[in-house]
C-alpha cells in the first residue's frame, strides 16, 4: 500500500503541471500570508472576503466580454479596493457598507456568468464559473506560472517595504497619525495590495476559498505569538507549508481537489492552535 502510494506520488511530482502548481502555489501562499497577517491585525478580514467575491465578478465580466480572465480579476479587485478605501474613514470602510456593496457585486457576478454561459464562446465552457469560484491550480501553464510568481514577488516586496509604517498605523492609528505617518494613504496602498493578492490567489484556490489562504495562517500566527515581526515570519512559513501539504495530499489522494486539501491543512493548523494554552492573551481579556 505504501509503495503504491509512493509511486503514485512520485509520478505526480515529475509531471510539469504539478511542478507549475508547486512553484506558483508557493509564491501565492507567501504573498497571501504576508498580506493576510496585516489583514487580520487590522480586523479587515471582511474586506478580504468582499474582494474575493469581486474577483469572481471581475473574472466573469472579462470572460463575457471576451478578454483574458486575469485582466478582469486584477482590474476589478484593484478598483474595488480603491473604492472601499476611499469611502471609509482613514482607509477603512464600515462592515455594513462593504456588505451592501458586495451583495450587489455578487448579483452582478451571477449576471455575467449567465451572459457568458449563454454566449457563443462560453456555451461549451459551463465549468468556467466553478473554476473561478474554486480554483484550478493544477491547470496553470508555464506562462501563467511565471506571471503568478512575478506578481506574488511584487506583492511580497511591497509588504516588506510598507511593513514598519503599516504596522505602526495598524497598532496605534492615532499616535501614528500624530507622528506624521500617512495613515490614510497606507490604508489605501494596503487595500490595493489585498486586491492584487485576491486576483492572484483566485487562480490557485478560487475566489471562494482564497479567504482561507488570507486568514488561516495569519489567524494561527496571531494566536501563537504577540511579536509582530515574528508573527509575520511565522505566517509566511505556515502559509507555504500548508500549501505544500495540501498539494502533496492532492497528488496522493485520488479525487481530492487541491483547493480542498490546502484549505483543510490551513484549517487544521488553525484548529491546532486552540490546543495551546493562550498565556499571552490574558491581559487583553481582563480589560475587555
Amino acid at each position: 500500500m505504501n509503495l503504491y502510494l509512493a509511486s503514485a506520488g512520485a509520478n505526480a511530482w515529475s509531471q510539469p503541471f504539478f511542478q507549475h502548481a508547486l512553484l506558483a502555489g508557493t509564491f501565492i501562499a507567501l504573498a497571501a500570508g504576508l498580506v493576510g497577517y496585516f489583514l487580520v491585525l487590522r480586523a479587515q478580514v471582511f474586506t478580504g472576503d468582499a474582494l474575493s467575491h469581486v474577483a469572481f465578478t471581475g473574472a466573469m465580466a472579462a470572460l463575457a466580454a471576451g478578454y483574458d480572465l486575469r485582466l478582469g480579476l486584477f482590474t476589478a479587485c484593484i478598483l474595488v479596493a480603491l473604492l472601499l478605501a476611499g469611502i471609509g474613514r482613514r482607509g477603512k470602510a464600515d462592515d455594513v457598507v462593504i456588505g451592501s456593496a458586495f451583495a450587489w457585486i455578487l448579483g452582478l457576478g451571477s449576471f455575467f456568468l449567465t451572459l457568458y454561459t449563454t454566449s457563443a464562446s462560453g456555451m461549451n465552457d459551463g465549468g468556467a464559473g466553478v473554476r473561478v469560484l474554486f480554483g484550478s491550480i493544477f491547470g496553470l501553464d508555464a506562462g501563467q506560472t511565471l506571471v503568478a510568481v512575478l506578481v506574488a514577488l511584487g506583492v511580497g516586496v511591497a509588504v516588506m517595504f510598507l511593513g514598519r509604517p503599516l504596522l505602526f498605523a495598524t497598532l496605534d492609528e492615532s499616535v501614528a497619525a500624530a507622528r506624521g505617518v500617512p495613515v490614510k494613504a497606507l490604508g489605501l496602498a494596503f487595500l490595493v495590495l489585498v486586491g492584487i493578492t485576491a486576483g492572484e490567489a483566485t487562480q490557485a484556490v478560487g475566489s471562494l476559498l482564497l479567504l482561507g489562504l488570507l486568514a488561516a495562517p495569519a489567524g494561527a500566527a496571531v494566536r501563537l505569538t504577540d511579536r509582530p515581526f515574528r508573527g509575520l515570519a511565522l505566517t509566511a512559513g505556515l502559509a507555504v507549508a500548508e500549501m505544500w501539504a495540501g498539494l502533496a495530499a492532492a497528488a496522493w489522494i485520488p479525487r481530492c481537489p487541491p483547493s480542498f486539501s490546502v484549505m483543510a491543512a490551513a484549517s487544521l493548523v488553525y484548529a491546532a492552535t486552540y490546543l495551546r494554552r493562550p498565556t499571552t492573551r490574558r491581559s487583553r481579556t481582563v480589560t475587555a
Partner: peptide
C-alpha cells in the same frame, strides 16, 4: 481574532 476565526470557518466549509 474574531474576524479571522469567522473567515477560516467560512473558507473551510466552502472547501
Amino acid at each position: 481574532g474574531e474576524s479571522a476565526a469567522i473567515g477560516i470557518v467560512q473558507a473551510f466549509l466552502l472547501a
